[in-house]
Structures are given as structure tokens and as C-alpha cells.
């Protein structure tokens, strides 16, 4: 990479980083100071402001992983494989956040930690598919066959994302539909908090995918150098 391009990349990185940090500060202020406490559920409803954007960040991560994997299968360029790995890891991270914060809200709202609601089940399924992807990639140094198989798994996982999104509209369940479908919406202060949180989590997902893809590319490059050195 040329010096000018690297410098430009660093500038964009720093810009996204500081914007995201500022947005997180504003988001926390909006959630705990500006947005009112919800009438039925009380203060526990504030989990919603991190839970829903985390689910959105999960979509970004898994979507990026699927796109990276698809391009890798077509071009066999390691750069896209690194993007696929980064997207899968970041998506799984946010999926874990969704699957752990959701039950804390559900315990108060539904009286149970977990129920086999369509949205919960399809989200768990997506998490398991991409956990399998990561397990496959973590088995020693992944060869070409493992990379291609994992890429196929990421594309399979992509099919589950629309199922998660539309599960609350197509199937009966208990998961709230406040901001999608026929939901009644939020109060304006709640929309502000949620909107800021969405932008902050988008920035965070982009930063994490970017950093992880960069680390993966360096790791791959090191492995390639080691291989060349051994066979010189």
C-alpha cells in the first residue's frame, strides 16, 4: 500500500473512531437523560436502545461476511477472505450481545428468560451458523478447502437474515414489533435515543470489521512469508 493511501486510510479511521466515541457519549445521554421511562415495563425497557442496534450491527457483520465470502469464492483473493472472517467475528459478537441482553429484558417483560419465539429462534440459528464458520476457521491454519467451505457456510447463514427480519410479521410470536410492521412506534425522545444508538453501533461495527480484517490480512501475509521462507 502506498504511503499516501495509508495516510488517507488512517485519517478516515481516526475520523470514524472519534465520531463513534462522540456518538456513544451522546447516545448514553439520550438514553438515560432525554428518553422517558417506559410506562408498562419501566426502566428495563432501556435495554432496547442497545439491544436493537446490536441486532442491526449483527446484520451488518453477517452481511459483510457473506459478501466477502461470495467475492472470495469468485476471485480467490485473500483480501475478501479476510473481510469474510472479520464480518463473521463481528457479527457473532453482536449476535451474542443480542442473545444475552434480550433474555434480561424478557425476564421482566414476559416472566421467562427464553421462549421459542420465531425471532429468537432464527437469531439463535444465525448465531450457531456463524459460530460453526468461526470454529471451522479456528482449526489450525485454514487451508483453501476450509476457506471455501466456510465461505459457503457464510452464504448459507445469509439466507437466515431475512427470516429473522420478517419472522415477527409472518409468524405468530411474542417478540415486540414497535418500530417495524404494524407497530405503534415510539415517543419522539425515544426515537432520538434509538436513532443515535443506531448510528453509533454502525460506526462501531465498521471500525471493528475494519480493524479485524486488517489484522487478518497481516496474519495471512505473515503465514505466506513463513511458507515462502520454508520453501526457499
Amino acid at each position: 500500500m502506498s504511503d499516501a493511501r495509508q495516510s488517507g486510510s488512517s485519517t478516515v479511521w481516526s475520523l470514524v473512531l472519534f465520531t463513534t466515541l462522540a456518538l456513544f457519549a451522546a447516545t448514553l445521554y439520550a438514553i438515560f437523560v432525554v428518553a422517558p421511562v417506559e410506562q408498562q415495563m419501566g426502566i428495563v425497557q432501556k435495554i432496547f436502545y442497545f439491544h436493537v442496534p446490536s441486532a442491526y450491527a449483527m446484520y451488518i457483520g453477517f452481511g459483510v461476511s457473506a459478501v466477502g465470502s461470495a467475492v472470495y469464492l469468485l476471485k480467490r483473493d485473500p483480501k475478501w477472505d479476510a473481510i469474510g472472517v472479520a464480518g463473521a467475528e463481528v457479527g457473532t459478537l453482536f449476535c451474542l450481545i443480542v442473545l444475552l441482553t434480550g433474555p434480561l429484558w424478557a425476564r421482566k417483560a414476559w416472566g421467562v428468560w427464553w421462549t421459542w419465539d420465531p425471532r429468537l429462534t432464527t437469531t439463535l440459528l444465525a448465531g450457531m451458523i456463524f459460530a460453526a464458520y468461526l470454529a471451522l476457521r479456528s482449526m489450525g491454519n485454514a487451508g483453501e478447502v476450509e476457506k471455501r467451505f466456510a465461505a459457503g457456510l457464510a452464504l448459507f447463514g445469509l439466507v437466515d437474515l431475512p427470516l429473522i427480519h420478517y419472522s415477527v410479521q409472518r409468524w405468530r410470536g411474542v417478540h415486540p414489533t414497535v418500530i417495524t410492521g404494524k407497530g405503534g412506534g415510539l415517543e419522539s425522545e425515544m426515537y432520538w435515543a434509538l436513532g443515535l444508538s443506531f448510528i453509533a453501533f454502525t460506526g462501531l461495527a465498521v471500525l471493528l470489521i475494519w480493524a479485524r480484517a486488517s489484522a487478518e490480512r497481516q496474519r495471512e501475509e505473515t503465514a505466506r512469508l513463513r511458507f515462502e521462507l520454508m520453501h526457499r
Partner: peptide
């Protein structure tokens, strides 16, 4: 099917 929450109302 209609038991799911459809809006959040502030107190």
C-alpha cells in the same frame, strides 16, 4: 397473535 407489544409509551 395480537398480544405482542406494538408501541412504547413514555411515563
Amino acid at each position: 397473535a395480537e398480544e405482542r407489544a406494538t408501541q412504547f409509551v413514555g411515563v
